[in-house]
Deep mutational scan, measured.
Amino acid sequence: MPSETPQAEVGPTGCPHRSGPHSAKGSLEKGSPEDKEAKEPLWIRPDAPSRCTWQLGRPASESPHHHTAPAKSPKILPDILKKIGDTPMVRINKIGKKFGLKCELLAKCEFFNAGGSVKDRISLRMIEDAERDGTLKPGDTIIEPTSGNTGIGLALAAAVRGYRCIIVMPEKMSSEKVDVLRALGAEIVRTPTNARFDSPESHVGVAWRLKNEIPNSHILDQYRNASNPLAHYDTTADEILQQCDGKLDMLVASVGTGGTITGIARKLKEKCPGCRIIGVDPEGSILAEPEELNQTEQTTYEVEGIGYDFIPTVLDRTVVDKWFKSNDEEAFTFARMLIAQEGLLCGGSAGSTVAVAVKAAQELQEGQRCVVILPDSVRNYMTKFLSDRWMLQKGFLKEEDLTEKKPWWWHLRVQELGLSAPLTVLPTITCGHTIEILREKGFDQAPVVDEAGVILGMVTLGNMLSSLLAGKVQPSDQVGKVIYKQFKQIRLTDTLGRLSHILEMDHFALVV
């Protein structure tokens, strides 16, 4: 994948999101292997301009796509893939009243899908469409860049269908997702969380590099694949309309690839034109409109599966009536509230959605109805927002919020430890010299600072030695090549209790 991002070429006709291997024109390309080798690009942008032909009021008969309808489940399912879809609609009884809503608040519980998330729908649909058009064949390999849930859905379907599955996901995604993927037989590649989507090191860039190296491999490409919004247009939206008897006044959905909100909203605009569509985008993402909503100094966020630093091709923002931004604290607070007060075992993005819903639905009156999409299960986040310690460490809970008995030293300040200034190293000294210094002084790690004293990161003896043994660096290389740029900081005025929580999850903390 090139470091400079080429513009994806656009073909003359058809839909841009065809499933299957992508040609340089962004659509299915038939021909000899030699032709494909000559024409197939190194990668295709996940934010390529959409060429979708959908228009409100256009006859369904003019759609270029294969459409399906929700099917009634048999008493005995032939395999677990038949437990994807037909998820329950559940009334939220307490939270709406707590925040003064007059309307009825309903939750579409997508964590009841077989793999635990709304992404099971698009995973199965992308595979079925690729099999139907002859792209996927027995023994082929599926590769997908994902925040985890699409990966789980694909790995689940691949396990049943017999495909090899490789999932490329950023490091910030939970260990629970990784464990589930491994249990399903998927191979996992992790990428830096802070890598831009168009960087060769991003999950998108690495996935395309693997595709170019592995024979008979395919990126189904949830960011561009029409099967993504079509899955929701054909099934999720129809289920909502049936469950609500066609009567709903507002739908609120958090947005990642945009397939969920695009597919549902398009069908609702056709069948229930008075329904307002509300999009939820986390602070630090750029999906919301108008652009002024996205202006923030924050560039990272903890909530998973929603928000991006690019506009995915499948996201149709014209069908969203209003956007709201959400933050991590309210997302996790509301997710825990949904679990504790409503018994809905949902993930953090569901918290984002409901946090926005109780604001947006203030305009609705008694007798009206708001539906929220709860995308995934708490299963993926047992060591994250479900953990009091994690919430404390991230600053989303305060010590006084917890009532468990603490040891005698818990409320003492870090400054009472009488710490001395640490050994520091410059980023320009060599790895070999740094190892000598650390061994001589008896230290395992040291902060790396520039000549102005600005902290650049941390270097550890173990990481340097393993990097040297693996051949990633040489003793003569500058130590700046092996620094940890993500590390926890703590102030002298913070409590030892807070430091204790940090050290339970990290090997060190830097006192500043």
Rank of each mutant, 00 (worst) to 15 (best):
I80W: 02
I214S: 01
K97M: 07
K211R: 13
P64V: 02
L42F: 10
S202L: 02
A207C: 06
A253S: 07
T191A: 01
N113K: 05
I122C: 01
D198R: 06
H67F: 11
I122R: 00
M250C: 01
N113D: 04
I264N: 14
P6N: 09
V168E: 03
W208M: 12
H218L: 09
G246Q: 06
P138M: 04
N228S: 04
L101Q: 03
R132V: 01
S227I: 02
V204S: 04
V252P: 07
R121N: 01
A71M: 10
C244F: 04
G31T: 08
P192L: 02
I127H: 01
F111H: 01
V180I: 05
K25I: 12
E176S: 09
T193V: 14
G205C: 09
D179K: 04
S3F: 14
T257D: 00
C109V: 11
L136W: 05
K269M: 07
S202D: 07
L156G: 00
M126R: 06
K271Q: 12
E40Y: 09
H65M: 04
P2N: 13
E239K: 09
S61G: 02
A48Y: 09
Q222L: 00
A107L: 02
V178D: 05
K271M: 11
I240K: 00
C272R: 09
D86A: 11
L181A: 03
E37C: 09
S202E: 06
S217G: 11
P170E: 04
A71C: 03
K108D: 05
P192W: 02
T13Q: 08
A183I: 04
R266L: 02
I80S: 13
G100W: 07
G263V: 01
G151F: 00
I142P: 01
K83L: 11
G11C: 07
S147I: 00
K269N: 07
G85K: 06
E34M: 09
S27K: 14
E29Y: 12
T236P: 05
K98P: 10
A48L: 05
I76G: 07
T146Q: 02
P138G: 10
F111E: 04
Y233F: 12
E213A: 11
D140A: 09
T235R: 02
R209D: 01
R58W: 15
A186V: 09
I92R: 07
T193H: 08
T193C: 06
T135N: 15
N194R: 03
I122M: 07
I219A: 04
V10L: 15
P200L: 14
G274T: 02
R182S: 08
A60I: 11
M169R: 06
A226Q: 09
S217Y: 04
P16N: 07
I143V: 04
R182F: 07
A237N: 06
D47T: 06
K271E: 15
A195V: 15
A183D: 03
D35G: 14
W43A: 11
D120T: 05
I240N: 00
S32P: 10
P145M: 02
R161L: 03
G148S: 01
M126E: 06
A69D: 10
L251Y: 07
G115I: 06
E201L: 09
D79I: 09
N225F: 00
T260I: 11
G148P: 00
I122W: 00
E176K: 09
T193F: 07
C275P: 01
T87M: 06
E104M: 02
I167W: 07
S123H: 06
Y163W: 00
L42T: 11
F99I: 15
S23Y: 10
L210E: 01
G162L: 05
I127A: 11
I80D: 04
F197R: 08
E40W: 11
I95E: 00
G57H: 08
D133R: 10
D234Y: 13
L248P: 06
F112S: 01
G274V: 04
L56M: 12
C103W: 05
N228E: 02
D249T: 06
T150Q: 02
K267I: 14
Q7F: 13
C272V: 13
I214K: 02
A24S: 15
V255R: 02
E187S: 09
